[in-house]
C-alpha cells in the first residue's frame, strides 16, 4: 500500500516537472526557474533538494535543446566558450555562497532572492518579444581581439546574416552574475545570459538564445558537482525531475513553433510572476517579517498582485501596438 503511495508521489513530481519544463521552454526562462518554486511551494520539498534536482535537470534540457541548435549552426560555440570563463567562476562562487547561507540557517534569504530574480528576469523576457536584429554598433577593440564575429542562415528572412559582438568585457561581467545566480539558486539563469549577450555584446537574438542554451549546461555542470558533494541532490527527486523536465521542454519546443498568437504567452508570464511573489512571501514568512498570515492568504495575495501587474503590462504593450496602427492608418 505504501509502495503505491510512493509511486504516486514519484509520478506527481514527474507531472510537476513536465509542467515546469513546458512553461520554462515556452517563456524562454528554462525549466529550473519554474521547477524550484513548484517543488518548494507545492510539494513541500526543502529548498536545497529543490535546487539540487533543478540544477541537474537543467543540464538535461540544455543539452537536449542545444543539440538541435548547434546542428543548425546558429549557436556561436566560440563566443560561448569564451564567456564560460566568467559563468563557471560565478557558479563556483554562487554555489559556495549557498552552502554558506545554508550552514548559517539563513535559507529564507535565498527564497526572497529567488522571487526577486524571477520577477526581474520577466522584464527583459517580456520586452524582447518581436525584436530580432540588434541596432548597428561599431566594432571595438574586443571585437577583433576575441574574434567576436559570425554568421548564420535565417530561415524566416531567407538570407545569411553576418554579425559582430562588442564590449566583450561587459559581457563577461554580466556572465559572472549569471553564473553566480545559477549556483546560488539552482537554475540555468538563461534570462541573465541572454541579457549579457544581447544587451552587453549586441549580438542578434537568435545567436543569443541558442548560445545561452548550451552555455547553461556547462554552468550547471559546475554548480551540480559542488551540490553533489554537499548532499544537495536527493536521487529520488532528481531522477523524477530530470525525466519530467526533459519531456516538458520537448513538448514546449514543439508547441512554441506552432504558437502564432503571442498573447497566450502572457498567461504564462502571469503564472511566473505569481510564483515570484509567492517565493518572496514564503521567505519573509520564515522569519515572521511583517507578513505573518497563513499560506492560503499568501497564495491569494500573490495571485491578486500578479494578475493586476500582468494586466497593466499587457495593456501597456497593447496600447503601444494600437497607437502604432492608428498612426499608420
Amino acid at each position: 500500500m505504501t509502495l503505491i503511495l510512493i509511486i504516486v508521489k514519484f509520478l506527481t513530481i514527474i507531472f510537476g516537472s513536465i509542467i515546469a519544463g513546458f512553461i520554462g521552454s515556452l517563456t524562454g526562462l528554462g525549466g529550473g526557474t519554474v521547477l524550484v518554486p513548484v517543488l518548494t511551494l507545492f510539494y513541500g520539498i526543502p529548498f536545497i533538494f529543490a535546487a539540487g534536482a533543478s540544477l541537474i535537470s537543467t543540464i538535461a534540457t540544455s543539452a537536449g535543446s542545444a543539440s538541435a541548435y548547434t546542428k543548425k549552426k546558429i549557436a556561436n560555440i566560440k563566443i560561448g566558450i569564451g564567456l564560460e570563463i566568467a559563468t563557471t567562476t560565478g557558479a563556483i562562487v554562487g554555489s559556495l555562497t549557498l552552502v554558506f547561507i545554508d550552514k548559517q540557517d539563513l535559507i529564507w534569504i535565498v527564497y526572497v532572492i529567488f522571487g526577486l530574480v524571477l520577477l526581474f528576469s520577466l522584464i527583459p523576457t517580456i520586452k524582447k518579444i518581436g525584436k530580432e536584429v540588434p541596432p548597428e554598433m561599431k566594432p571595438d577593440w574586443s571585437t577583433k581581439l576575441f574574434q567576436l564575429t559570425g554568421s548564420y542562415y535565417d530561415e524566416r528572412l531567407r538570407k545569411t546574416i553576418k554579425y559582430h559582438g562588442v564590449r566583450w568585457w561587459l559581457g563577461e561581467i554580466v556572465m559572472f552574475f549569471a553564473g553566480f545566480v545559477s549556483g546560488l539558486l539552482g537554475i540555468g539563469s538563461g534570462a541573465l545570459k541572454v541579457l549579457g549577450m544581447d544587451w552587453a555584446m549586441n549580438l542578434p537574438m537568435k545567436v543569443t538564445t541558442t548560445s545561452s542554451n548550451f552555455m547553461i549546461g556547462i554552468t550547471a555542470a559546475t554548480g551540480s558537482s559542488i551540490y553533489w558533494y554537499e548532499g544537495y541532490i536527493n536521487l529520488f527527486i532528481a531522477a523524477a525531475t530530470a525525466i519530467g523536465v526533459l519531456i516538458g521542454a520537448f513538448f514546449g519546443a514543439k508547441v512554441l513553433v506552432k504558437i502564432s498568437n503571442e498573447n497566450i504567452r502572457w498567461i504564462f508570464f502571469a503564472i511566473l510572476s505569481f510564483l515570484g511573489f509567492d517565493m518572496v512571501f514564503k521567505g519573509l514568512h520564515m522569519i515572521n517579517f511583517i507578513i505573518t498570515f497563513s499560506l492560503m492568504i499568501q497564495f491569494f495575495i500573490s495571485i491578486i498582485i500578479s494578475i493586476v501587474l500582468i494586466s497593466i503590462l499587457f495593456y501597456n504593450s497593447k496600447r503601444k501596438e494600437w497607437s502604432d496602427k492608428n498612426e499608420k492608418s
Binding site: I56, I59, A221, S224, S225, A239
Partner: peptide, 12 residues
Amino acid sequence: LWVLIFTPITVV
C-alpha cells in the same frame, strides 16, 4: 546523473 554532468563538459 554523472553522465549528465559530464555531457556539457565534452563540448568544451
